Simulated scan of single mutants.
Amino acid sequence: MGFLLNTRVGQLVLAVILFCAIVAVLLLIAKGADSLRERARRPAVVAVFAGPALLLLAAGLIYPFIRTLWMSFMDNRSENYVGFANYVTALTEPSNLVGFRNTFLWVILTPLLSTTIGLVYAVLIDKSRLEKVAKALLFLPMAISFVGAGIIWKFVYDYKGAGQDQIGVINALLTWVGLEPVRFLQDSWMNTIFLILVLVWIEAGFAMVILSASIKAVPEDIIEAARLDGASAWQLFWSITIPSIRPSLVVVLTTISIATLKIFDITRTMTGAKFDTQVLANLMYDESFVFGNNGLGSAMAVFIFVLVVPLVMFNIRQMAKNREVRG
């Protein structure tokens, strides 16, 4: 037993044994459910296949949410009940208000810019000779992690004092043409805009792929009929394309909004969430793990959850409507 617990090989063997045991138990339960009478078989089969998923959901999502919600009403050491004091602090502390302002700025600008760029790009390259290459170029950033993208763009925005050699791409170009270097990431409030552009660079490819597929699904006979009636390119786009791809537009906007609400990596990597660039996720992390204020950190987590859940529910409803229309 000591070999299994104290060595890497032993731990791997133990993990394999446990995995095989779990699979064997599930197979036995499934076989037992299959042997039941027809009346009792369906509930048993549902329990067998949905049970493990529901247990994991309860352990990994429902219990942590309930615990986080409870901790948000406790003090910094999670010992004494303080009511809504943490929520009041979250909504009145100046630094927290900056985080809320930045979060809403991210959620408003990122989906709109990403979707607009993706849509315009998809329309422009549709049925062009180099369409696949053009799509690949815009979609490539999606393969990069947020941390990786943050490091790349940190070098793009990098600033050195006047008179020093600039290693940042943009500032090097500015000094090359005789202009003064700019503190892109240090000077508020525009630094948040420059951070938002990084996520737009990543998400525009996602929007383009989804919307391009939707554009190709627009019936050709409708477009041809509109052209015969004398519709211009703009009228075709605004009156035919946009209404036809509206469900996909909504899904893209809400999906990007959900990802934006949880943004953490880019601000942490590029500015350390300093210079008034913090968002709700940074505030949650700092309060919980840097300052040890579990109550206020949990309150920030609840705020993020409350903002994300309506978007998730709306997104699910839209996707269900899309399936009904296609069906």
Rank of each mutant, 00 (worst) to 15 (best):
K154I: 00
P111D: 11
V120F: 07
G292S: 04
S95T: 10
V308R: 07
L307D: 03
L140M: 15
E224M: 13
N80H: 14
E220G: 02
R323L: 10
K154P: 00
F206L: 14
I170K: 10
P43T: 05
I240E: 12
F155H: 04
I152M: 15
L26H: 13
R268G: 01
V200E: 04
R183C: 04
S298Q: 07
V82K: 10
M284V: 03
Y285F: 15
T260H: 05
L28N: 05
L228V: 01
Y87D: 02
R129P: 00
S257A: 15
W238S: 15
L130M: 12
A44Y: 02
C20Q: 12
S35W: 09
M313T: 13
L105W: 07
L54M: 15
T92C: 10
L253M: 14
N282S: 06
R268V: 01
S244Q: 09
A143T: 14
L280A: 06
G230P: 00
F3S: 07
I17T: 12
L211H: 06
T269H: 04
F291L: 12
V325R: 15
R39A: 13
Q164F: 11
I202K: 15
R323E: 14
G99T: 05
A134I: 02
F19E: 09
N322F: 01
T7I: 08
I316Q: 13
V133D: 01
